[in-house]
Amino acid sequence: MDHVLSIRNLTIDFDTPRGRVHALRDVSLEVPHRKIVGIVGESGCGKSTLISAALGLLASNGTVRGGEVLFEGKDILKMSQTDLRSIRGERISMVFQDPMTSLNPVLSVAQLMTDIQYRHLKRKPDEKRARAIEMLRQVGIPDPEQRIDHYPFQFSGGMRQRIAIAMALITNPSLLIADEPTTALDVTLEAQIIHLLRELHGSKFQSSIAFVSHNLGLIAEMCDEVVVMYAGEVIEQGSVRDLFHRPSHPYTQALLTCDPARIKKATRELPTIPGDVPNLIDLPQGCVFRPRCPKAFEPCGKTPPRPAAVAAGHEARCFLLAP
């Protein structure tokens, strides 16, 4: 099977005044062609570091200790800045969390959307504008011929996120990274944006999507495959049905239990995961989830577990599966 993005054994450390933060450890995941892969996890689990690495945008105090990030077969971590620039925005594009701040406020939408086509030297300005208008129409901006000359502040939040999606897809990238694209929006708008993304994905756009979220409902709704991260490790991955119907890692199970939307009967005593996320400078010995795990047993404290197969295409890092 061909993968658009394939991350193998990626390990990243950050040097900070307090010590070395082991932000990602031995992370492997694949984004197959034309699929939507969800990356889910709580704050501080390494989702953002993973995205930055995939875009070659690691902060200057970050060091790659090992592993590779293959985009269409080429290692992003080894690319020159020139090569990276030819990929970013063209082959890999991104939709950010907050549509209020991700669009440049001093440029009109027309300028924003023609500028992003700067690599297409043969395209005439009129043609770039026509493409931008067509793209705005596809994302559901009413009256795009007029609206294209407006500035971002003249659009509402939901419309701005639609524009951000239009900008990301105008180059027809092979990978779209959506980082919590609906967190800043209300539920009714969130539903509209999610619906739009799925509709565009199902139509002529060839992009694969890496969808980062902490909202399990959105992951279930959007994704084909899911990667669950905890404290810098991928602790479980598999198809969306496997993950939601047969969660195999105790953390995934706990996370699903905690979601109030999954609790059918109203209750005042909501389930929680006791304890805190481990300190990434000084990691616990053995499995990272052991201090909070209700099912921890003897081997968990000795060595970190290796990913174990649960079923075809479904694996979890837990000693319960492969002692």
């Binding site: 939040g157 539920v187 009714t188 708008l189 709704e221």
Partner: peptide, 25 residues
């Protein structure tokens, strides 16, 4: 009813196909 139905369901078998509310506040 639209607000209640707009909450995404954490179950991949309950994917909603329709969006009832158009436009914004």
């Amino acid at each position: 009813r639209a607000l209640i139905s707009a909450v995404p369901q954490p179950d991949p078998d309950l994917r909603r196909e329709i969006v009832k509310l158009v436009g914004e506040i």
